[in-house]
């Protein structure tokens, strides 16, 4: 049996901002996948806001994700067939929010894309796409935000402006931030850094 992660003992407090660093293949992404309830560990327990994830089924975890969690990915992960507005509306609509459209356009306005609501991802630059993704992540007003190398696919200047926006939104919303990164500067902006090496916390 192959152990991808072992000996992880981690408590993250509400409102905290945490950076997870480590080399490629060290298990960072697996760790946040587990923390966000996207996957389940073969042994051990994970609790999120009082809910024990490891005891829930996939649909239960899905509901919890919708309720508590926001995501930002390295490769943006916008649905190509939808406009910027529709992409941001998506988690709100899944939640059944009647004011989805209103909220989403406000958020897009907040990230500086108020004039590009009806553009599809193909018509947007990388930086703009990541802004849409940020708006989508904060749309449901999540308690926890998982960001997986949010600047990995961007040049340094655009990346910096995205990070600034991320931290601004984070403090406005009092969100717990869990950030996976290679970048030591970026990690330094978080309150705490956790280093993973060969699947172990060091």
């Amino acid at each position: 049996m192959l152990h991808i992660l072992s000996s992880i003992d981690l408590i993250i407090n509400s409102g905290e901002s945490i950076a997870i660093i480590g080399e490629s293949g060290s298990g960072k992404s697996t760790l946040i996948g587990l923390l966000a309830g996207l996957d389940t560990p073969s042994s051990g327990t994970i609790s999120l806001n009082g809910h024990e994830l490891t005891k829930m089924n996939e649909d239960g975890r899905a509901a919890l994700r919708n309720e508590l969690i926001g995501f930002v990915f390295q490769s943006f992960q916008l649905l190509q067939g939808l406009t910027a507005l529709e992409n941001v509306m998506l988690p709100l609509e899944l939640k059944g929010d009647k004011k989805a459209k209103n909220l989403a356009s406000k958020l897009l306005d907040r990230v500086g894309l108020g004039h590009r609501l009806l553009h599809t991802p193909k018509q947007l630059s990388g930086g703009e796409q990541q802004r849409v993704a940020l708006a989508r992540a904060f749309a449901t007003n999540p308690k926890i935000l998982f960001a997986d190398e949010p600047t990995g696919n961007l040049d340094s200047k655009t990346g910096a402006s995205i990070i600034d926006l991320l931290f601004e939104l984070n403090s406005e919303n009092h969100t717990t931030l869990i950030l996976v990164t290679h970048d030591a500067h970026l990690a330094a902006r978080c309150e705490r850094t956790i280093k993973i090496e060969a699947g172990q916390q060091v």
């Binding site: 996207l38 996939e58 649909d59 899905a62 509901a63 919890l64 994700r65 919708n66 309720e67 969690i69 995501f71 992960q77 649905l79 998506l90 988690p91 899944l94 939640k95």
Partner: peptide, 15 residues
Amino acid sequence: YEGTLMRTFGANRKF
């Protein structure tokens, strides 16, 4: 791709 993404955002199997 879309299915997994939707589920990441909390869509359940029923949806």
